[in-house]
Simulated assay, not measured.
Amino acid sequence: MEERMSELRIEHLTSPEVADALASGMRTAILPLGATEQHGAHLPLSVDSDHADRLGVLVAERLGDALVLPTVRLGCSAHHLGFPGTLSVRPETLEAICFDCCESLAVHGFRRVLIFSAHIGNYPLLSEIEAKLSSRLPAELDVVAFADSAAVLDAWRTAVADLGSQVGGHADVAESSIMLALRPESVRADRVAPGLAEPMDDALLARVLTGGVKAVAPNGVLGDPRGMSSDLGFACLSAVANLLAEHAAARYRPLT
């Protein structure tokens, strides 16, 4: 392509513009998954979806041949239903949405799709979705899913290493900083409070997913949001965008 498009979000393009992008070689699509769920008393329920919105564009900019689909703003959030406002869909519902989106992409001539989630509760689904979708979709469409939540948490921990704050993976210093970077007016700074002071690992994640967040963190926070800053938020966004783009580039088959 001689010139990069300034708008990479499909929903903000016209149909002829999408056709032109495909003809110019932009055959990759990015499908971000989010959620609508509680994030403590200081963050809105839109955190994961707002986060996914931005990551999708950042990854597309890094790949150079990708357009971004609308974020799926409902996720597998049953473990947050102890808190008012949380909405949750069944894994099979989310899988069906992903399949339908990919089937549409194949019709239009897209050849690659990267599915990622800014909500850790969707990761169990993502760990199995490649095989499930690929078995039902045209062979010409290369489906790649990112399912390494530990790598995301490690990227956040590296970003906050000098602060001494606790990365717990939910409404913590990383997610709070990301929201300060994306939508500072949405952060209720006067309501910030630490939550469960345990590092997120497989054992804790299993407890959270089976018993619910409220059982381990009554205020809905896993980690400590204190020390949050927009600069840290931008650093976390950049680190994870790099992680996703590198994963996609390493996994995609060459187009023929």
Rank of each mutant, 00 (worst) to 15 (best):
M5W: 07
S6M: 13
A23R: 15
A29D: 11
L31N: 12
P32W: 07
H42I: 09
H42R: 05
L43E: 02
L45G: 08
V47I: 05
S49N: 03
D50P: 00
G56Q: 05
L67V: 09
V72M: 11
G75W: 08
C76N: 04
C76L: 06
S77E: 00
H79Q: 08
H79S: 08
H80M: 07
G82M: 00
T86Q: 02
F99V: 11
V107L: 05
G109N: 10
L114F: 03
G121R: 02
N122T: 06
Y123G: 00
E128G: 06
A131C: 03
A131V: 13
D142T: 12
A147E: 05
D148Y: 07
A150C: 10
A150W: 13
A150D: 15
A151N: 10
A151W: 08
V152E: 12
A155C: 14
D162F: 09
Q166C: 12
V167R: 07
G168W: 01
G169K: 03
A171F: 08
E175D: 12
A181S: 14
L182H: 08
R183A: 14
V187K: 02
R188N: 09
A189C: 08
R191I: 10
A197E: 09
V208P: 01
G212Q: 01
G212H: 02
A215T: 09
P218N: 10
N219K: 04
L222P: 07
G223K: 01
F234I: 13
A235D: 11
C236T: 15
A245L: 04
R251Y: 04
Y252P: 04
L255E: 13
L255T: 15
